[in-house]
Design a binder for these strands. Sequence first.
DNA 1: ACTTGAGATGAAGAGTTTCGCAAGTCATGT
DNA 2: ACATGACTTGCGAAACTCTTCATCTCAAGT
Lengths: 112, 112
Amino acid sequence: MGVPLYQAKAEFFKTLGHPARIRILELLSERDHAVHELLEKISIEPSNLSQQLGVLRRTQLVTSNRAGGAVVYSIAVPEVRDLLLAGRRILTQLAAAQSQLGAELAVDLPES
Amino acid sequence: MGVPLYQAKAEFFKTLGHPARIRILELLSERDHAVHELLEKISIEPSNLSQQLGVLRRTQLVTSNRAGGAVVYSIAVPEVRDLLLAGRRILTQLAAAQSQLGAELAVDLPES
DNA sequence: ACTTGAGATGAAGAGTTTCGCAAGTCATGT
DNA sequence: ACATGACTTGCGAAACTCTTCATCTCAAGT
């Protein structure tokens, strides 16, 4: 393997490390969207959206097709859904742990 | 929810977007490790490792306990394994797609 | 009390990302 | 041919991340 494996993995996760890109992937995992549709649902400058789409395109997570005047984007790797789900689950887990801590602190904690 | 949700998700994936942090999580998802054990398996300066552990600690993905002279780290959220697995699967998928493209190109491609 | 090994922390320089703007392409309607 | 709507691209300034160095803490052994 050319590039060390963890490097590739890190690179991959880095791609998901941006709010707009996450939203794009979530929207696309529901159904294909034209750029102007994404633009309506994500509040962001067109050029910025285009940049983020470019990032996703370069990492091959999405593909684009011109449909007349519009450009339609699709998820290239369906497994992305699973990943987003797994992420959501962990986030829920973390949030639960934090609110539990909050509750304990609120109850005049018995021990430091 | 205070912070927009996608922001939180992005934040979370960003945490995984670093080779050392990925390796740490992979090693810890096998079993707990003391810092000096991680240091043996990951080639990185001690202080750098400590920084990356700090990042993981702050996002609550790992926890540390002092065991005499050593500090032992553990995965805080077991679901992380699933996430790493899902990531691996996608990466495999992408690699497969690329090598297929490679094969097609090698066969004197019939059409541009 | 002193030393030593194991980690953590702070700060600074280098490098990378992000965002908005201006300019460019491409297909469609006139 | 031209105007327009739909995207993309290049560019520079601001914001962030990474890595290393020097410094610090903590516990165990002497």
